[in-house]
Design a protein around this nucleic acid. Sequence first.
RNA 1: GGAGGUGUCGCAUAGUGGCCUAGUGCGCCCGCCUGCUAAGCGGGUUGAGGAUGAAACCUCUCGCGGGUUCAAAUCCCGCCACCUCCGCCA
Length: 424
Amino acid sequence: MIDIRLLREDPDRIRAAQKHRGESVAVVDALLSADDRWRSTIAAYEHLRAEQKSLGKQIPRAQGEQKQTLLARTKELSAQVKTAEAAQNEADREFRELAMALPNLASPEAPVGGEDDFVVLEEIGTPRDFAAEGFAPRDHLELGTLLGAIDVERGAKVSGARFYVLTGIGAQLELALVAASIAKATEWGFVPMLPPALVKPSAMEGTGFLGQAADDVYHLPKDDLYLVGTSEVALAAYHGDEIFDAETLPLRYAAFSPCFRREAGSYGKDTRGIFRVHWFDKVEMFTYTTVEESDAEHQRLLAYEKEWMTALGLPFRVVDVAAGDLGSSAVRKFDCEAWIPAQGKYRELTSTSNCTQFQSRRLDTRVRRAGRTEHVATLNGTLMASTRTIIALLENHQQPDGSVLVPEMLQPHLGGRTVLEPIT
RNA sequence: GGAGGUGUCGCAUAGUGGCCUAGUGCGCCCGCCUGCUAAGCGGGUUGAGGAUGAAACCUCUCGCGGGUUCAAAUCCCGCCACCUCCGCCA
């Protein structure tokens, strides 16, 4: 949600941000007039209510005819107050509906354009030259099958398309990745968290996932609960309706949770293997801080992601996502895309967003500073998304015989193993 | 799933329809007193919103939402959370 004061004082900034995203500018005028309506209805209601209260106070002391007159007048007022209150509620509802639909203000620094208009900020590491090495790289599914690590056929048997089972060394590999990433995050000062993957509508709404992303979210109608697509949802809602003391910020969490995505509208895309699936596990970083600190914190989260990818020995590039592809809650977003040899492309492995006050306004998470309260900034960033990390590891570290070298950092978490061997 | 209980200001508690503009204690903040500290004394201490150049001012906020009433922390209905017991279960 945006700041009502900003809407009143500088609507042009919101118009510019909308334009930057390639979205409607007209909603700003609709919001302004809804705000006008709301303000006049609330003034009318409060005026009537004040009169009702002051007259009502005289009633117990009044006698006889005077009392009857007062009672008649307040009875009349009572009805008027009720009408005015209903009008005020309706105007408030209309305004909120419009305001909740508005995305966060895109940062002017985010590149102009849509999905394909990202800017590559840097490339780290060099993709292997398999031709020079004299063999064609196998893709992750082939490797996963050789290693006895990935079973998509039985995943489909059990749960349907876009499901998989990690088996044997595949299961151990994920657990090692989780342990290693949580260990890193803890070392960096993040508090490890295991939040629920099932959340209330308010948590989903508060993080902005029931807007344009609603089709991608699993809903359990019988209980009116949602399956999270990321633990960001639970972590953002975790401190909802709270007011922090200034010195408790920044607050950094690293959560492990399963993630569920319907992948509506991606039929036929990335159908092979476990690249695009309905469920995967993820370790996510999440920060509560002040708006002023949020850009620096965003860079910090990005730096952690880079450090992690580098420790895994993955060649990758960092991408500055264009304004039109930000999603509703972010003002700016950086993706780390790892080189996937079998695809010959860089693909998204991690993503970090600065959501400034968008989520904290909806969830009402504030900080008390200098005697005032203000909404905090929230930021999130992937540390380790299991399936895609496994894909990148297998493909980038494969050898001609189908074995896979284990990056040094993971070895202690795999009982000292340095190489994963095909099963016979 | 069944039965019962509880939900008031940071914490503890008072409050059974109008003197509640929510009292008191603790904690916290400011001041006085004091060589310093403590004690003592005085004042302040939820959050949000409207109006204004700024204020004074006004409205909402007693878990949440509705209702009854001229008037609701208080009465009624629904929901939520927590506690106790029973059943079931990893």
